[in-house]
């Protein structure tokens, strides 16, 4: 399965990011490059989980404000800065569900469903895809979240673990359990 290159950095870019983080810790005005770098990723993360585009943009602003307020607490202890931002975004998205008494959305491109079909060793035919569309709703929120990150957002298990505060292996095991649950519904 292909992995989204948007979420991965070269060592040079990571080093450059460290400098930006240090500068942003000294002065909030210096947060600009980090905002520019991560704005689209955070927006796509938020908008993937809701249906209101304008609200998603508002939440993204809120995420960056929180990040600016708390950047002095960020320390590179193995969790990348991006994952730290995604954790803030996750928290803000759930806060928005509570504030607006709305339900979570999972936006799916049907072309991505073939990856799941492929992963559970089923034939990639139309009826299997339709059946998958009908049974995804039977998953728990915690399970669809894993499949969403892995197959719809194309994240690596390492990154999923960083965002969800799990080990890479645990993210992998939980994802495979969700897939196993789906597979069991095919037979």
């Amino acid at each position: 399965m292909s992995i989204n290159p948007m979420f991965h950095h070269t060592p040079d870019r990571l080093q450059e990011e460290q400098v930006w983080i240090q500068q942003a810790k000294n002065r909030p005005e210096n947060f600009g490059p980090l905002y520019k770098k991560y704005h689209e990723q955070i927006f796509r993360y938020v908008y993937q989980r809701m249906d209101d585009k304008e609200l998603a943009f508002d939440i993204v602003s809120q995420v960056f404000m929180k990040a600016m307020s708390n950047i002095h607490k960020f320390e590179d202890r193995g969790v990348p800065f991006a994952a730290w931002l995604f954790r803030i975004a996750k928290s803000e998205v759930y806060q928005s569900y509570r504030d607006n008494v709305t339900t979570r959305f999972v936006n799916i491109e049907t072309t991505h469903l073939t990856d799941i079909i492929d992963e559970i060793d089923e034939d990639e035919n139309e009826s299997n895809i339709k059946y998958l569309m009908s049974i995804l709703k039977n998953l728990k929120e915690s399970e669809i979240l894993l499949l969403e990150m892995r197959f719809f957002e194309k994240r690596s298990f390492k990154e999923m673990g960083d965002i969800l505060a799990l080990t890479e292996n645990n993210a992998k095991v939980k994802t495979f359990r969700a897939l196993k649950k789906l597979k069991s519904k095919y037979h």
């Binding site: 704005h39 689209e40 799916i108 049907t110 929120e141």
Partner: peptide, 21 residues
């Protein structure tokens, strides 16, 4: 699960997102 599924929502372009920065 307590969530709604939405299939094939129109994609949003990078340009549109950047324009909102």
């Amino acid at each position: 699960g307590n969530f709604n599924l939405k299939f094939d929502r129109p994609k949003i372009s990078s340009e549109e997102i950047v324009s909102k920065q």
